[in-house]
Every structure is written in structure tokens, then in C-alpha cells.
Amino acid sequence: MKVERFEDLEIWQLSRELCKDVYQITSLEPFSRDFKLIDQIRGSSGSIMDNIAEGFERGGNKEFIQFLSIAKGSCGETRSQLYRAFDCKYITEAKLKSLTNSAISISKKISTLMNYLKKSDIKGPKYKQ
């Protein structure tokens, strides 16, 4: 499959799903009353998909790799915040495992794409003649 838009990227699609799941869990009681953690975890989960999109749209592999690195960091941040939510008894252990497994999978896929781009001779669409 040819990737023409960031929406075509599996890592962006998976990140979008994780972000939707985070919004869903943060809307439930008692989580919905912890405004600071809600703001942090919604921000970090949204940052994953947003940085993938922004890096892709920059049109160059080096910039894309840089933004993928930021997205990977946001993935770790989201996982850490999920543990905080669990420790505060906002989510169940099953929900923690499910969401952290999703974040770990996304992080691994981001790493795979970064490694591919680093080895690729293609510089990106903005460098095409």
C-alpha cells in the first residue's frame, strides 16, 4: 500500500484509537474529576498522533524522524500517566494492561518506521525534482 497521507499510516490510525480510548476513560467517574491528570494524559495521547501527522506533512525524512521521536516520547508519557490513573484507582488493571499494551505496540511500530527511514535512500517528497 502506498502511503500518500498521514491518515494512511497504521501508526497514526492506532494512535488515534489510543487517544479516543483515553478520552473515553477520562470522561468516567472518578477520573473525570482529576482535571490536572485529564489534561496531561489527553495532551500526551493526542501528541502521539499529532506529531506523526506534523512530521509526515513536513515532507522530509529527517524532520519526520525527529517528530516520530517526539511521538514515541509522548507514547511513554501516556503509559506513565496510565499507571498514575491506575494507582489512583481511576482505571482497572485490565484497562491498564489493554491501554499500555496498545501504547507499547505503537511505540515499537514508531521505532520500526524510524529505523526504516534512517536506512532509506529516499529523502522525502519535498526533495523531489
Rank of each mutant, 00 (worst) to 15 (best):
M1H: 12
K2T: 01
V3A: 03
E4A: 11
R5A: 07
F6R: 14
E7C: 11
D8T: 03
D8L: 03
I11K: 06
W12I: 00
R16Q: 08
E17M: 11
L18I: 01
K20P: 13
D21M: 00
V22L: 04
T26G: 10
S27C: 13
S27K: 12
S27Q: 11
L28N: 08
P30K: 09
F31Q: 00
R33K: 08
D34G: 03
K36M: 11
L37G: 08
D39S: 01
I41A: 04
R42S: 02
R42V: 06
G43W: 06
S45D: 02
S45V: 00
S45T: 01
G46E: 08
S47N: 11
I48D: 01
M49S: 15
M49F: 05
A53K: 12
F56Q: 09
E57N: 11
G59T: 03
G60N: 15
N61L: 12
I65Q: 04
F67E: 08
L68C: 00
A71E: 02
A71K: 01
G73H: 01
S74M: 07
C75N: 04
G76S: 09
E77W: 02
T78L: 04
T78P: 03
T78W: 00
R79D: 11
R79A: 13
S80L: 09
S80P: 02
S80H: 12
L82N: 08
Y83N: 10
A85K: 01
F86V: 07
C88T: 15
K89T: 15
K89F: 10
Y90A: 06
T92C: 08
E93N: 14
E93H: 07
K95D: 13
K97A: 10
K97Q: 09
K97D: 15
T100S: 04
N101I: 12
N101V: 10
N101P: 06
S102A: 14
S102E: 05
S105G: 09
S105I: 15
I106M: 07
S107W: 09
K108S: 13
K109N: 15
S111K: 13
M114R: 12
M114E: 12
Y116K: 11
Y116E: 07
K119Y: 13
K119M: 14
K119N: 08
S120T: 09
S120I: 01
D121I: 14
G124W: 01
G124R: 06
K128T: 15
K128A: 10
Q129W: 15
